[in-house]
Amino acid sequence: MQNNQHNPFGIKMSKKPLTKNIVTLTALVIAFAVMLVLSEAGILSRHMRSMLVPVCINIILAVSLNLLVGFLGELTLGHAGFMSVGAYAGCLFSIAMKEILPMAIRFPLAMLVGGLVAAVFGVIIGIPVLRLHGDYLAIVTLAFGEIIRSVIINLEFTGGAAGLKGTPQDSTFVIAFIVVMITLILIINLVNSRHGRAIMAIRDNRIAAEASGINVTYFRMLAFVMAAFFAGVAGVLYGHNLSILTAGTFDYNKSIELLVIVVLGGMGSIRGSIVSAIIITLLPEVLRDLADYRMLIYALVLIIMMLLNASPRFAAVKAQFSPAALKAAAAAKKAAKEGNANE
């Protein structure tokens, strides 16, 4: 019914994106349950257990960056900057409230604080940055990320270059996973809503979108601020997972790593972002046994995956195994069977 409200011409909206996303979410919940059982039973190695929270953090970062890169169609290189603002805000809040509030109240509040502060920075930075497009926007966001980092290094209360210490270690796999689910549900809903369609319309043709009465500035700002908010929340999770927070972590390399995740997973594909966030986070750790060749192999694997992703032949192979293709194959098989039975 809701569809009709936004759809005055009665055009039938495809229900496909929604079911596709429900499949993604269900798969994630199952994976989570399996990992939780394995980790509680002690089957999972400590090394892999320590990767669970970072994987969740990278999923949040990748999905929120995808909102900008994939759905809004703007290349930004400042995502690590928003992450660091959120991390510092959330950690400073937690340190101040350590003795006052219990963890169950403090940590969600810290995430909210981190997210909101990052969102405020999103607005402040968005006002000048969103006047630009394409390469210019990428360069300016990169510069803003670096400014944030330099400011943090030069401030006293952030611990400067020595880093911020004494944050309570509140991040757990369960909490991180809950945040992942909330992020996914909110972002998927946004993308599939009228707002999401407006954002994608801007991506596909800004002039046409503007001519159709879409407030381009508003929707670009909305996507920018939302992405900043979730990056901030991910930053808070990151800060509460380690006992030290240093500004050096959030340099442009981090932003580029996040961009690699999004591009690898496919721009505009939320499921792709999730899968590639898992792979990119785990890959360097799984390759630890290769010692000296680790970073070489990691780079090679990245190149191969990017080439495969861009290859139409691989896309055709992949399509054969997609749920839709499997369904079609099953239907064909069934039809053939019935045909046989009829004979």
């Binding site: 499949v23 269900t26 798969a27 199952i30 994976a31 399996v34 990992m35 394995l38 089957i43 999972l44 190695s45 090394h47 892999m48 990767m51 898992i278 792979i279 785990l282 750790e285 799984v286 630890r288 046994d289 749920p323 499997l326 369904k327 099953a330």
Partner: peptide, 24 residues
């Protein structure tokens, strides 16, 4: 049915990736 199978496979793949690292 196929869908559930696909989900289970995906979940298993992730599990294998995690657990893949040998624990000596």
């Amino acid at each position: 049915m196929k869908k559930i199978f696909a989900i289970a496979l995906a979940a298993m793949m992730i599990t294998v990736m995690f657990a893949g690292c040998g624990n000596s």
